[in-house]
């Protein structure tokens, strides 16, 4: 996808203190049990108590992040809302599955069923904002956020002034166990700060939400421009390289989805070797691995482009860029299947 759009506002709830003030002095939060949970804010300033009482965790995280991104953008007029999520509200899905069995299919609470539908967060944002514009939800693992982004860029090209685009994901103890049975996580317990030093199969689990207000035109406030998007489904290593060569971005840094999983490191090696003289900035030690982690990577990249710095505690001294960063390539893949290249530019 060609065409350019701008990030006018954004917000993230993640396993790091990303929702609070003073991002650049934020500490580095970590885990030693292979699961990085979100640092959740107080939702009351964002959601009325009468709505909050029924909402499950994923809905609160998703809606609150979306609302903060809207506020951050200073845009008040309604526009389309497009999101991506690989798994939606797992907590609700699990609860309804269990209650069907526990209560033998009789007298079931409808709320978990309603909230388990993948578009429930999008519906809530629209409802809360009284927004009747275009509304769509993509649910395709490592292509969920990316397709939401593509849809949003198309909407802007078709004439929308701005689009709220986001992604959200949660991990539950049960789903962590389920995915451990097919090798998603490292079998040894590691310190998440050292994720990339463990050259073994699997990664650490994570979760989070990131929302962006995208606009056609830049303003003084814009964080960054999104200048290109390329997706590859189950490519060979050669295909990743040839795409990279054809895409031919000249960039000052690569934000890499590297997640410590030795089975798929070779893809990251190709991209990093292609750009061997510029900083490679990882982010999975911050947010963990999940379907829509690339949205966190984009949030990080946009911050770097706007502020020209990274939270000090999150990276080793020599990982902090020493030269101005004007262009960034974000490269991420989800367990080797869905690969995405996103080009970001300083405004």
């Amino acid at each position: 996808m060609k065409g350019k759009c701008y990030i006018q506002g954004m917000a993230a709830i993640s396993p790091q203190p990303t929702f609070e003030e003073n991002l650049f002095s934020a500490q580095l939060l970590y885990t030693d049990n292979n699961l990085l949970p979100c640092k959740e804010p107080d939702y009351k300033p964002f959601i009325p108590a009468n709505s909050l009482r029924r909402m499950s965790r994923m809905l609160k995280i998703g809606l609150t992040t979306a609302l903060k991104a809207i506020t951050d953008s200073n845009l008040t007029v309604q526009g389309p809302i497009v999101t991506g999520t690989g798994k939606g509200s797992l907590q609700d899905t699990e609860k309804f599955l269990k209650e069907i069995v526990t209560y033998q299919e009789t007298a079931l609470n409808p709320t978990p069923f309603i909230q388990s539908t993948y578009n429930s967060v999008n519906g809530l944002i629209a409802l809360q904002q009284k927004c009747t514009a275009y509304n769509n939800t993509f649910v395709h693992r490592g292509f969920s956020f990316e397709n939401a982004l593509l849809d949003s860029m198309m909407l802007l090209q078709e004439g929308s002034d701005h689009v709220l685009t986001g992604a959200f994901e949660e991990i539950t103890a049960e789903h962590f166990y389920i995915k451990s049975r097919i090798g998603f996580w490292k079998s040894e317990q590691i310190d998440s700060r050292e994720l990339l030093l463990h050259n073994t199969p699997g990664s650490v689990a994570g979760e989070g939400a990131a929302f962006f207000m995208l606009t056609q035109e830049p303003t003084d406030q814009s964080y960054a421009a999104i200048n290109g998007l390329k997706l590859l489904y189950k490519p060979s290593a050669e295909k990743v390289l040839s795409t990279l060569q054809a895409f031919a971005p000249e960039v000052d840094a690569v934000i890499t989805g590297r997640n410590g999983d030795c089975r798929f490191n070779h893809f990251y090696n190709i991209v990093e070797q292609h750009f061997d003289n510029i900083p490679h900035i990882p982010f999975k030690h911050l947010c963990g691995e999940y379907d829509t982690a690339s949205a966190f990577g984009m949030w990080l990249g946009a911050n770097l482009l706007k502020h020209q710095e990274l939270p000090e505690a999150w990276f080793a001294k020599d990982q902090h860029p020493s030269k101005p960063i004007n262009k960034i390539l974000l490269y991420n893949h989800f367990y080797g299947e869905q690969h995405a290249f996103i080009l970001l530019e300083r405004v």
């Binding site: 769509n136 649910v139 489904y233 189950k234």
Partner: peptide
């Protein structure tokens, strides 16, 4: 195990019939 999410059916169909380009799955009820 991994067939619960919505992308599973899309990718299985894609792989069996041979889609190798852009794929996506939408869920709006």
């Amino acid at each position: 195990i991994d067939t619960l999410d919505c992308a599973d059916c899309t990718q299985r169909i894609a792989d069996i019939v041979g889609f190798g380009e852009h794929i996506a799955t939408i869920s709006t009820a």
